[in-house]
Design a protein around this nucleic acid. Sequence first.
DNA 1: CCTACCGATCGGTAGG
DNA 2: CCTACCGATCGGTAGG
Lengths: 189, 189
Amino acid sequence: MNRSKKKVIQIAAAKLFRDRGYAATSMRDLAEAVHLKASSLYNHISGKEEILKDICFETSQRFLEALEEVEKKDISYSEKIRHLIQLHIQTAMTDVTSITAFNDEWRHLSEPHLSTFKTIRKEYENRFRDIIQQGMDNHQIRNGDPTIILYTILSSVRWLYDWYRPDRVLTSSELEDSIINILMSGIAK
Amino acid sequence: MNRSKKKVIQIAAAKLFRDRGYAATSMRDLAEAVHLKASSLYNHISGKEEILKDICFETSQRFLEALEEVEKKDISYSEKIRHLIQLHIQTAMTDVTSITAFNDEWRHLSEPHLSTFKTIRKEYENRFRDIIQQGMDNHQIRNGDPTIILYTILSSVRWLYDWYRPDRVLTSSELEDSIINILMSGIAK
DNA sequence: CCTACCGATCGGTAGG
DNA sequence: CCTACCGATCGGTAGG
């Protein structure tokens, strides 16, 4: 019944899912992480999959909201793309653990959640791709296959959770600038 | 005892590991995929982890050999980086299933394999990073944090296994050119 | 290569 | 929130 306890469980679960993966994390592992017995978890959640489902949909919600915000802004298309890259990096850095479940563990969802998740994800990608396409139409982005550009951007930002730990020397804005610079202008001189 | 049967098992396992993950793949799933009973698998392999270990180390071996070849070439540093990106894409496209285990499932290895794998991987990254650093020293690559550049390149190429299926309209060399172009010259006009 | 089976562990429930 | 326990499934072995 306690709302915050559910959140504590979710955060502990996200950490375990990142470190071992969803399938390799047992309810007993999770219970131990929050100092409970496995059976007591069920006072706060309905089952293992509910946690994964919540993590996946809450994270996708945050990405969609960020996208919506960028879409509404009255700026150039290349500025919109810069903003989206920046938002991805910031999201990945402030909630590094949930991102992993969102990226890699969603496939363990069962129906109907799996289909819903895929649909949301596809919609996000389509709207991001539209911005890239419009950037090309308006001669702000170099011509090319917008799908390849889309996935190259998304992938570049995906590795962050694998590497970034909050005690890093490198500041967040230095990292953002570097990655945006590579994607927008390339590494060649 | 049959060598090719072991290979058949390994290929089927790589496919299952990609689709469901290592932990969520049971020996019974694997047995069914190669038309055997679970117990019969043990005539060809010593256990579940051996398959994962073989996939991980064989794949890392292929990447190291490709790196070595590029290092020896008498070409500019930016050409070496182009070559490495190309080799990653080609490897990912010719053996799309093993790459997933290599990328995402190695963490399920137990010691001492886990440490060995991490060491090999780190060495690969260090040598790739050296080429980037030398590219900067020789004014062929824009100045920046070589680690960020390294991971941005590796990540860009990592998503391929998630997306590419061999029946694609897009040819391999078109894909290579596009990704190399994005990374070397950027997407901005 | 199979049948038969092992102990361990899984997600989850009953009942208090 | 716990103890006690469920049936199912896990990786793997014995023996033929």
